[in-house]
Simulated assay, not measured.
Amino acid sequence: MKKIGKTYIFELPPLIIGSAGVAGKKEGEGPLGDDFDMVFEDTTMGQDSFELAESAMLHDAIIRALESANVSPKDVDFVMTGDLLDQCTGSCFALKDLEMPFIGMYGACSTMALTLCNSAMLVSAGANICVAGASSHFASSERQFRYPLEYGGQRPPTAQWTVTGAGCAVVQNQRNIDPENLQNAVKISAVHIGTITDLGIKDANNMGAAMAPAAARTIADFLHDTQTKPEDYDLILTGDLGLTGSKLLFELLQEDSEIDIETQHKDCGTMIFNLAEQDVNSGGSGCGCSASVFCSHIMKNIKNGTLKKVLFVATGALMSPTSTKQGQSIPGIAHAVLLEK
């Protein structure tokens, strides 16, 4: 790796050789429904709790990603996944029977980019195959961070809907790749671990405002480090600022850095739902939002050549039930991954 500013450029880029994105019923009814590798009509997944249902969904995404890469669990050096539940229990129970070396990671809704960044760096450092993933479930997240579903609280327009979904990507060292996998591989050209940014937002129903400053900082830093412009990319993908956070992102980049990304920008939180028809207020959120969108819809469009150069910037609101009850602000984080066909 070569470090420029805060960005790491890979001289021999790690390759994503397989991926899978799965989702729940509501997500399957949205604009991207046909691109998910699996849509589960029963979001309890036949389990005794919503938390176990989330684990079952992540387990399914991991197995599908490994199958798409023609990789066995015994061939995996490290698996890195995360979720929104206390102590990453969603990931722990998803992986406990798969016999793979496990690293749990928490980056809130930025977790998919965080696990991808670390997978790429471990592969660059000598590992052969790493698995990166993330998950969330509407019901398990709601009762941890907000209210029991039975409460029926009203949501303000800035609120976002936690996605029931999971995504997983298999990253391999380019030196060891099977030639049959090379044609459909996607290279990770660079990664950027974000810096915590806190402008004092305390409203848990406006996470887009909490995360937008971190997204603006990471995007501006990445473009500066790589000496590139927004028009150099087919897509600058955030996840998941929602409608409110995306508008704030544009304003912050224009005011602070004179950068205009509106033409190239899309957000996983506004892509996964039909905002006008699905009653999700400002859009989707949760670890599973960017994970399911990236590992299905985006990866398929890179592989088929529709997208050739994508800057994936997943965003996270680093709050907890404890910090919220104590009146603390919501720090934001955003990690970036550069992907090319």
Rank of each mutant, 00 (worst) to 15 (best):
C130P: 03
T81P: 04
I193C: 02
D86P: 06
F138D: 02
K187P: 08
H335S: 05
D232M: 03
Q144E: 06
E41W: 14
K229V: 10
L95H: 00
A159L: 06
T306N: 14
E27T: 09
Q326P: 05
A159S: 13
I298F: 08
E142P: 00
V171A: 01
E180T: 04
Q328L: 12
G288M: 14
Q154P: 05
N281F: 15
E255I: 05
A61K: 00
T263L: 05
T197H: 15
A20S: 05
H335K: 03
F294G: 02
G152C: 05
A209E: 09
P148G: 09
S49K: 14
D34L: 13
Y8P: 01
A61I: 02
N118E: 08
Q326L: 13
D232E: 06
G305A: 02
G107I: 14
M105W: 14
S292G: 06
P321H: 10
A108V: 03
E142A: 11
T195M: 08
W161C: 07
V191Y: 00
L253T: 07
P101T: 11
E142I: 12
S140V: 13
P230L: 11
T322S: 11
E51A: 09
A69V: 04
Q183C: 00
I17E: 00
V163E: 04
A276S: 10
S136L: 07
A69K: 01
